[in-house]
Simulated scan of single mutants.
Amino acid sequence: MTSLNRAGRSIYLLFFVGIIAISFSSIFVRWSTADVAVIAMYRLFLTNLLMLPFVWKFRHEMMRLNFRQWALLLASGVMLALHFLLWMGSLRLTSVASSTVILALEPILILAGSVWLFKAKINRMMIIGMGIALLGSIIIGAGDFQLAGTALRGDILSLLGTIAVAVHMLLGQFLRAGLSAFSYNFWVFFVAACTLAVYNLVNGHPFGGYAASEWGIFLLLAIVPTIFGHYLFNWLLQYMNATTVSMGVLGEPVFSSLLAWMLLGESLNGLQMSAGVVIIFGVWIFIRYGKTKPQPIPSDAPLAGKGPVEPTVV
């Protein structure tokens, strides 16, 4: 087996880990009784806290950003904050299946943006793979879509949150060309957390007084879907384009719906489970036949077994 093949398999494995990790996000949010803006704020601040032991190694790069990089980081962080605020808010108004299936629009938005901004090339098999995955996503959420009351408001919030995260990912592809994953993630998460802190302050949301179980949920959100999910996806932008990375979100309805069925008692029928297989097949076609293949992992990367383990790989 060549080193390139090993690197490609490692990338795909990490990609799968990221999909599983982000699927837990909706479950943790449902378990919490705190305001979603507070949940998102502490989720990101705790992520930054977990990253602090590694800051020293990247201190020079983190403080030597130019005006354009700072501006893009600010915009990317604000978009990430909006995504968390809107999408997490949707989970209080509609089902996990409905909310996560709307996120399936993210790859289409990012693909359109990549073609426009990066002149990305697409082929017929990529479009077929995306279409198959989208069809499976629609089947999963179809039984839960409601066109009235709080469910409709929840679906609209999820759609707006999807647009926000698509912009965040496209800005990330610009920034990751000249920044390490650690520097990019640390500053983007910090900007997003501060944005949410201002929002909470303006709206009078309490910053303390939460039960130990709530702090446990905040910490779980920081570790599982943020570090093992968003952080990992941002790291993968170094080896995969934004459209391919965003395809991971199409796997989220599958695992989120399964978790919601097991842990929250939400309904899941045989048709929806079959649709999950369709989604995974579509994602596989998109990645397998995409024109942009994973780049080989450099020799000094932690996956190569050399050098210190950096949090960007966790």
Rank of each mutant, 00 (worst) to 15 (best):
P225D: 10
A37C: 02
G204M: 13
Y210E: 01
I122C: 00
I287C: 04
R9T: 06
R124P: 03
A193L: 07
S99Y: 14
A193V: 07
P107N: 04
M247N: 08
V101H: 11
L91S: 13
I297F: 07
M125V: 09
I279A: 11
T100N: 12
L105A: 15
L232W: 03
A166C: 02
E310V: 09
L268R: 08
T226G: 12
A197E: 07
V283E: 12
R92M: 04
T100K: 08
K291W: 12
T292M: 12
I20F: 09
G8F: 00
P206Q: 02
A21I: 02
F190G: 04
I156P: 10
R64L: 01
L50Q: 14
T244F: 04
G129A: 03
K293W: 07
T94H: 07
L72E: 11
L65V: 08
G305W: 03
L73F: 00
G89Y: 11
L263K: 06
T226W: 02
F228M: 10
S32F: 00
W87N: 09
S114L: 01
F84V: 05
G18I: 03
L236P: 04
N234C: 07
G178Y: 11
A197S: 11
M1I: 15
L44W: 06
M88A: 12
S3G: 08
W187K: 14
V167W: 09
